[in-house]
Every structure is written in structure tokens, then in C-alpha cells.
Amino acid sequence: KWEEIAERLREEFNINPEEAREAVEKAGGNEEEARRIVKK
């Protein structure tokens, strides 16, 4: 599940997989929260 979210974030925000994974981890697997983290 987290991998899927990280993949979507990576494609959408054009970030590297590591950044995407970190955002999802910080968000506890919550996609909306992960998006907010990435946008900062």
C-alpha cells in the first residue's frame, strides 16, 4: 500500500523514490498527509 502511494507521489510531484517513501512514512501511510509533506 505505502509503495503505491509513494509511486503516485513520485510521479505527480516528480520527486525521487526516497523522498516519496519518506513522505509516506512521516504521514503514517496517509496519502493526503503525505501530499502536504511533499508540497512543503
Results as ranks from 00 to 15, higher is better:
residue 1 K to Y: 12
residue 2 W to A: 07
residue 2 W to Q: 04
residue 2 W to E: 05
residue 2 W to P: 06
residue 3 E to K: 13
residue 3 E to N: 12
residue 3 E to S: 09
residue 4 E to Q: 13
residue 4 E to F: 04
residue 4 E to T: 07
residue 4 E to Y: 05
residue 5 I to A: 05
residue 6 A to G: 04
residue 6 A to S: 09
residue 6 A to M: 11
residue 7 E to D: 13
residue 7 E to F: 05
residue 7 E to P: 01
residue 8 R to M: 07
residue 8 R to S: 05
residue 8 R to F: 02
residue 9 L to Y: 00
residue 9 L to T: 01
residue 9 L to F: 02
residue 9 L to P: 00
residue 11 E to G: 07
residue 12 E to R: 02
residue 13 F to V: 09
residue 13 F to N: 10
residue 13 F to M: 13
residue 13 F to D: 08
residue 14 N to P: 13
residue 14 N to L: 10
residue 14 N to T: 05
residue 14 N to Y: 06
residue 15 I to Y: 03
residue 15 I to C: 13
residue 15 I to M: 08
residue 16 N to L: 11
residue 16 N to F: 08
residue 16 N to P: 15
residue 16 N to T: 15
residue 17 P to L: 15
residue 17 P to I: 15
residue 18 E to F: 07
residue 18 E to P: 03
residue 18 E to K: 07
residue 18 E to I: 13
residue 19 E to F: 12
residue 20 A to T: 03
residue 20 A to Q: 01
residue 21 R to P: 02
residue 22 E to R: 14
residue 22 E to K: 09
residue 22 E to D: 11
residue 22 E to H: 13
residue 22 E to T: 12
residue 23 A to I: 12
residue 23 A to N: 01
residue 23 A to V: 08
residue 23 A to F: 03
residue 24 V to R: 00
residue 24 V to T: 06
residue 25 E to I: 15
residue 25 E to G: 08
residue 26 K to Q: 12
residue 27 A to E: 01
residue 27 A to S: 08
residue 28 G to D: 12
residue 28 G to N: 14
residue 28 G to P: 00
residue 28 G to H: 13
residue 29 G to F: 06
residue 29 G to R: 02
residue 29 G to Y: 06
residue 30 N to R: 07
residue 30 N to T: 04
residue 31 E to I: 12
residue 31 E to G: 03
residue 31 E to N: 03
residue 31 E to D: 04
residue 31 E to W: 14
residue 32 E to Q: 13
residue 32 E to I: 11
residue 33 E to D: 10
residue 33 E to A: 09
residue 33 E to V: 09
residue 34 A to D: 00
residue 34 A to P: 00
residue 34 A to E: 01
residue 35 R to H: 06
residue 35 R to V: 07
residue 36 R to F: 00
residue 36 R to S: 13
residue 36 R to T: 09
residue 36 R to P: 01
residue 37 I to Q: 08
residue 38 V to N: 01
residue 38 V to M: 03
residue 39 K to G: 13
residue 39 K to R: 15
residue 39 K to A: 14
residue 39 K to S: 14
residue 40 K to H: 12
residue 40 K to S: 14
